[in-house]
């Protein structure tokens, strides 16, 4: 434990870094027009959430109080990260497939021009 602890910064630094990366991803999702870059920014946001999950699970495993396990043995944070990664992988596969299909249909990938469903 001592070896591991000596490599660790305080919790709030990890949380602040996660919040900053999430905000950066928000900027990208709102302002970029290339859907692939928008997907990358979504991945950035998911990763910042993963960092937050892991750091909170490391520093504060008692936060979910209604649990029958001993707080130290609670593995919800790492398990949530695994599920986020699985969902992100499925999302990227399907999303990039959709982008390719739209590109085949319209020969362009600008999200501002994608208004097929506007009616």
């Amino acid at each position: 434990m001592g070896e591991v602890r000596s490599l660790m910064a305080p919790l709030w630094m990890y949380l602040a870094l996660g919040a900053f990366l999430f905000a950066t991803g928000v900027v990208g999702v709102v302002s970029r027009r290339n859907p692939i870059v928008i997907f990358m920014c979504i991945e950035l946001m998911l990763n910042s959430v993963n960092l937050t999950f892991l750091s909170l699970a490391r520093f504060a495993p008692w936060l979910p109080v209604a649990h029958e396990l001993e707080p130290k043995a609670w593995m919800g944070g790492p398990a949530a990260v695994i599920f986020v990664m699985a969902v992100a992988a499925a999302e990227v596969a399907v999303g990039l497939g959709i982008i390719m299909a739209i590109f085949r249909l319209r020969d362009e990938v600008d999200v501002d021009e994608m208004n097929l469903l506007r009616g």
């Binding site: 305080p10 919790l11 699970a57 504060a60 495993p61 008692w62 043995a73 609670w74």
Partner: peptide, 10 residues
């Protein structure tokens, strides 16, 4: 959460 400086997990 500024006070949490040491890890509590197992």
């Amino acid at each position: 959460l500024q006070e949490a400086a040491s890890p509590q997990a197992a």
